[in-house]
Design a protein around this nucleic acid. Structure first.
Lengths: 192, 192
DNA sequence: GTAAAAACTTGATCTAGATCAAGTGTTTTG
DNA sequence: CAAAACACTTGATCTAGATCAAGTTTTTAC
């Protein structure tokens, strides 16, 4: 499955043979069955994780036991808990597989080394972070200014394809509404 | 006012004399009166802006004319619209001064040059971006899982000092509630 | 292949927070 | 320093979306 990551690298940046080999030498392949955890609340996250196949969700659980989905991540995206990684503190999140998935992991030490040794890799990582930040800003804006229906329409237009592979309950949680509300919205919008 | 930024740099990173001078040579000082715009919706944002004094807000206006505050930024923080800057597209945001303020601007070209020429500067910028992303994630989580009262208590504990210098109406907007609701929450929590 | 468990739908009712309205207090500005 | 503009409070009423409940449909697992 490493070829998928190699292809991603080739698209995003330009590397010498030696650099590519250095990156590959640190790659840890990890397979996850559906429902299996990549990270559990309380654990300290140690990696940078790239998804070559499948779909994962990051969520937290509040005192009432309600799950709140923070994000979905699919093939060709990264996942993990930056806060836990950066401050080496126990995570408030769980990450688990929505589908059978395959990942490539890099320990933070190795990842930092790659960033230091390979400027093109460092630039790629920064560009991804910038885009993630912009996406987070847009999500904040949506959560502040959109109605439930607008949030759903925005979601399916922004992430077409997600709606078909992710259970509605999880999408509802991601959008900050109950599954019942999402069900009713879908019924209504289907009519139009 | 450049000394404030110099002090910030000295705290966050280690630079040679030459590097410091290079950075300073690109700095553009900008003063803003209260209510004055730094950026208006539709404009394309061209800078990286550091605040040496004052307080700014970033907000958008929806079709109904309602303002939604995206963020507040005070001295020793950065502000701007990353999305507009990165993709050179018209901004959906307005940024204006809540207090008389002073900023240091770097055009994106100069800023990129500094990142390229000064690895320590680049690392500092990345670290800031990481922290901004983590803060955005936390805000998303709060907006999904907190009640109006919890959002307010979380805000004042996370940003003590903000409540006294920023009008309540704007804080309410930032927290995604009406000014009336915030007023009632403050009355209640004051009792306790 | 079938029973149990999830996932989704639909209806009835409830409620946190919004909206509307009418104050009072506090800046800003000529 | 007055009056206009703005910021905040308080009360009455309304509503989007939550909650509770009881189905039906789909998926999972032996």
């Amino acid at each position: 499955m490493y070829e998928i990551f190699q292809k991603y690298l080739d698209e995003k940046t330009t590397l010498t043979k030696t650099e590519s080999e250095l990156i590959q030498s640190y790659a840890i392949i990890k397979k996850l069955r559906k429902r299996q955890y990549l990270l559990q609340e309380g654990d300290i996250w140690k990696y940078n994780a790239f998804i070559t196949r499948g779909c994962l969700r990051t969520y937290s659980v509040d005192e009432k036991g309600t799950e709140h989905v923070n994000s979905f991540s699919i093939e060709n995206w990264w996942t993990g808990d930056r806060e836990s990684l950066m401050f080496q503190q126990p995570s408030r999140f769980n990450i688990d597989a929505i589908e059978d998935s395959e990942l490539i992991l890099f320990t933070q030490d190795n990842f930092e080394l790659l960033c230091r040794e390979i400027p093109a890799f460092n630039n790629m990582v920064n560009a991804i972070l910038q885009k993630s930040f912009i996406a987070a800003q847009n999500r904040i804006q949506a959560s502040l200014s959109f109605t439930a229906e607008e949030k759903y329409l925005n979601f399916i237009s922004k992430y077409p394809g997600f709606a078909s592979r992710i259970p509605q309950t999880m999408i509802a949680s991601y959008l900050g509404m109950t599954p019942e509300t999402l069900s009713r919205i879908r019924k209504q919008t289907a009519k139009k």
